[in-house]
Amino acid sequence: MAHGVCELLWLRRLLRDLGFEPQKPMDLYCDNKAAIAIAHNPVQHDRTKHVEVDRNFIKEKLDAKIVSFPFINSEYQLADVLTKAVSSSIFHNSLDKLGMCDIFART
């Protein structure tokens, strides 16, 4: 999530340099409810000590309303097709949404 926030900050700065100032928080869709809860919760737990620096960075950007973390079901997470094994129906559905096609298919 911290790397995603860094990429959003880079995109935000690029848009600002091009003359398009974002008027609302940029969305970083996340399919992990625990990660969203940790980002919003100011209380540190024993389980989250190893992510304290990243969590503070994320919380700072969240409080400044630069980013927001809407929840999205895993079946609608398009990046999953590129990062993990998914069922064939989700795979083909994601390929269609991404606009990818088989260049070796017969016409």
Score class of each variant (00 low, 15 high):
A64H: 06
Y29W: 14
R47C: 13
M100I: 08
L14C: 14
A105G: 06
H50W: 12
V53T: 15
C6W: 09
A2S: 11
F20H: 15
G99H: 04
L8A: 13
K49N: 09
C6G: 14
A39I: 03
K97W: 07
D17P: 00
P70S: 02
L62M: 11
F57I: 00
H45P: 00
N93I: 02
F104T: 13
I90W: 02
L28R: 07
I58M: 11
I90T: 07
F69Q: 08
D96C: 14
L82K: 08
E7M: 13
G4F: 00
K59N: 12
E60I: 02
L14I: 11
M26V: 14
F104S: 14
D46V: 06
I36D: 07
P22E: 03
E60V: 01
I66D: 10
L98C: 11
R13T: 08
V67M: 02
H92A: 06
D17W: 01
P70Q: 06
T48R: 01
L14F: 14
H92D: 12
Y76V: 01
Q23N: 06
N56Y: 01
I72N: 03
I38L: 12
L82Y: 11
K49R: 13
D96Y: 08
I72E: 02
A79F: 04
L62I: 10
Q44V: 01
V53K: 09
D27I: 01
D31I: 10
C6D: 12
L95S: 09
S68Y: 04
E7Y: 06
G19V: 07
F57K: 01
S68F: 05
T107E: 11
L18H: 12
D17C: 03
H45V: 02
E21T: 13
V86A: 06
L14D: 12
Y29F: 15
D102G: 03
K49E: 09
E21A: 12
Q77P: 02
T83K: 05
V5G: 01
E52F: 05
H92V: 07
N41F: 04
K33V: 15
L82R: 09
S68V: 09
V5E: 00
I72R: 01
Y29E: 10
A34S: 15
K65V: 11
R47K: 15
L15W: 15
R47I: 10
I103F: 13
C6T: 14
F20T: 13
I58D: 02
I58K: 07
A85R: 08
D46E: 14
V51R: 05
R106S: 12
V53W: 07
A79V: 10
R13I: 03
L78V: 07
I36E: 09
L95D: 02
K49G: 03
L14Q: 14
W10G: 04
